[in-house]
Amino acid sequence: MTIVLIGEAEFKEFELLAEAVAERGEEAVVWDTTDWPSDVPVTFDVGGDTVTVGREFDLDEVTGVFPWVHHIFHPSLSRFADDFEDEGTRNLFMKTDQWRGIFRSLLGLFDDRGATVFYPPGTQHYDEWKPLQMEQFTAEGISVPDTVFTTDPDRAREFVADHGEVVYKPVVEEAWPNRLSESDLETAPLDRLANAPVQFQEYVEGDDVRAFFLDGEVVGASRYVTDEWTFKTESRIDDAESVDLRDEVRRDVERAGEVSPMRFGAADLRVSDETHALLEVNPGPRFAFHDLYSATDIAGVLADALVN
């Protein structure tokens, strides 16, 4: 029995997950994507019983696969910054797409062969579907902030005026959220919205909480300890605390897990003593920070799912 972990091996999550798999008596092999595209030999023999990624693997011996979706399917373009000038945009995108095509197919192949595969093809892009996420959650009665996605400056001004203070951020990809209030409207460069849609969300008071779910059930929840208005604006967070979610909060996270196409993910929430709001759901969430502070044991939960 072999458990395959796919992604940039320097991330602490891979170390924790490999250790948890080994503690359960199985072998964990990391396919390190840090330097891909590279000269690592990769062969997909159609109709064969093996695949090669660095070395040969028997398809029937691979019983569990966990890919870090952000490292395979939509890696940050900054990773390839030095290559754009040397290779050109078209060539670079073409190369990375060929690698992604192979590994999307490998995930589907292992899934077809009966392995436990997290994020088979078609399930790994849910974090790019934020407008659909919020619509689906609203339809399920999940508590979410008022939200609008727009390229229209007038609609954005109207939304800010209605709520007094909002949070704005891109629709997809990583970027820190920012706050915008009515007093900022005169100087805010909202005319730039024509370049790309932006997500505006009512500002919600409370603590930042990340709740992990697996197969529609909450398997851990952690509160970020920070003095900032959100942990995402701090370069370093010094602590995390385990959270016992209230019934209504847990119910919303589990509903969101059932609505999403993913077995495993994390819901980011704002939680106060009396209210809560679910902000978004993410595939491939970071969990090492929470595990290392003993707020959760997500590595153990995932290892159990992969091994069993």
Rank of each mutant, 00 (worst) to 15 (best):
V204D: 07
L59D: 00
E182T: 13
K95D: 14
G47P: 07
E254V: 03
A161R: 15
A156R: 08
F57D: 01
E173V: 10
A267N: 04
I3D: 01
A221Y: 12
G48H: 09
D207R: 03
H125N: 10
R113T: 04
P189N: 08
R263P: 09
V271L: 05
L17E: 05
L279H: 11
L59I: 05
L5K: 01
R79V: 03
F57P: 03
E174I: 07
L109N: 01
T150K: 13
F289I: 05
L306E: 09
T233W: 08
F118H: 00
E13A: 13
R246L: 02
R24V: 09
D208T: 07
T34V: 11
L306I: 08
R286T: 14
G101T: 10
G101K: 01
E174C: 11
E87A: 11
R255A: 08
G7V: 06
D247L: 02
A156T: 04
V281F: 15
S235E: 15
F231D: 02
A28G: 14
E61S: 05
E158L: 14
T226G: 04
S183K: 07
N91K: 13
F149L: 03
Q199C: 15
R24D: 13
V253R: 00
Y119W: 08
D297K: 08
E280P: 12
N308M: 05
V117G: 00
S235C: 10
T33M: 12
D273Q: 09
A266P: 06
T147R: 00
T50W: 15
V21M: 05
A211S: 10
V42M: 07
D58A: 10
S181C: 05
E128A: 12
H70I: 12
P197L: 00
T116E: 04
G108S: 03
G25H: 13
T233P: 01
V166W: 14
F93H: 09
Y119N: 01
E205N: 12
R24G: 10
K130H: 13
I142L: 02
L245Y: 13
V253S: 01
F231K: 00
D207F: 09
Q199H: 12
F289L: 10
A81I: 12
F14L: 04
T226I: 07
N195C: 12
T33H: 10
E173H: 14
F80C: 01
T296C: 08
R210E: 06
V259Q: 02
A139F: 11
L190G: 04
P131Q: 07
F137A: 02
A266H: 02
H71C: 03
V65W: 05
G7N: 08
F44I: 05
F264E: 01
D86W: 12
V148H: 08
E13I: 06
P189F: 07
T50G: 09
E274V: 15
R263D: 09
A20I: 09
K12T: 15
E182F: 09
D208H: 12
V253P: 00
L109I: 00
D86T: 14
L109F: 02
P37N: 02
V271W: 10
E258D: 13
R286E: 14
